[in-house]
Computed example of a mutant assay.
Amino acid sequence: MTKVYKNAEHALDGLLFDGMEMMAGGFGLCGIPENLIQAIHTAGTKDISIVSNNCGVDGFGLGILLDAKQIKKMYSSYVGENKEFERQYLEGELELEFNPQGTLAERIRAGGAGIPGFFTKTGVGTVVADGKEHKEFQGETYIMETGLTADLSIVKAWKADTEGNLIYRKTARNFNPMMATAGKVTVAEVEEIVPAGSLDPDHIHTPGIFVQRIIQGNHEKRIEQRTVRAREEN
């Protein structure tokens, strides 16, 4: 059976349901699966719990799901530039589990590796440690964090072959590779699909065994904060 689907709607067919848990790759607006996010918005799936570093920006990326009240809970490390994210959380409309960024990354990696929990010093002595198991190792206190998995992972890559092997480009790699391993089903949107065997095995970041469905998308590639330097006068 082919892993290549003609568009995001077809790739998500049969995978979406209310109350699902989902992982969405990206960091800010870098490396986000924007076509798949739009398709989820169009499908109207609601009460979603989403694992993502942040929640896009107002009106773009995961922000469109937030605006439509399709998200019930976020597992994140950064509110970012999304004022609606902040508003919904402060007004009690959105559940939020804040994680130190490295802890969030390791929770996802652990989930994908089949590791149910691990100990870390990050967060000891802060509200992050409240309600968590504490344990001493070599005289130092650590807290236990649990691995994260999801019903669906949606990721963005630069290039894929028809077997689902993925290559990410530069900083767009971010959370995508670890999330690809932690979903029961992983759907990848990419900029280019090439025949199987075309990719150098040494350059593959995510093996195709982790990827069930692929689409080739059109990407807007917005810049979250465009900063330019004033022209220098001679």
Rank of each mutant, 00 (worst) to 15 (best):
I64Q: 02
Y5G: 08
D130S: 12
A230T: 13
L94S: 03
P177N: 07
A43T: 03
M1H: 07
Y89H: 13
G63H: 00
A113I: 09
K72P: 01
E140T: 08
G117P: 04
E81K: 11
T149Y: 02
E21D: 15
G63L: 04
E133W: 10
V51M: 06
G44L: 04
G25C: 10
L199C: 02
I193W: 01
A68V: 02
G139Y: 06
E189A: 02
F118A: 07
R169C: 13
L94G: 02
Y5Q: 10
E145I: 05
N165A: 08
N54L: 08
G208N: 06
E95K: 14
R173Y: 10
P100C: 01
F98E: 08
K184A: 14
H10G: 11
T162D: 09
A43Y: 02
L36F: 03
T171D: 12
K6W: 05
T146Y: 14
E191C: 12
V187W: 07
G61N: 05
L104G: 00
D161H: 04
V51H: 00
N176G: 09
I204E: 07
I40W: 02
Y75Q: 06
A160Y: 01
G31Q: 06
P100L: 05
I48L: 09
D58T: 04
L152V: 09
L36R: 01
A11I: 15
T42S: 14
N234T: 15
Y142G: 11
T206L: 02
E93N: 14
G63I: 04
E136Y: 11
E34N: 07
D151F: 00
K121L: 08
M23K: 01
M23T: 11
P177H: 04
V190H: 01
G56N: 06
V127P: 14
Q70Y: 04
A196F: 02
T120L: 08
F60V: 09
H205L: 07
M178A: 14
V187R: 00
S49I: 07
A172L: 08
Q70M: 06
G147H: 02
I48T: 04
L90P: 01
Q216M: 12
N218K: 12
F119R: 10
G92N: 10
H203N: 13
G19Y: 14
R107H: 01
G147N: 02
H134C: 09
D47Y: 08
H219S: 03
E34S: 11
Y89R: 13
K156N: 12
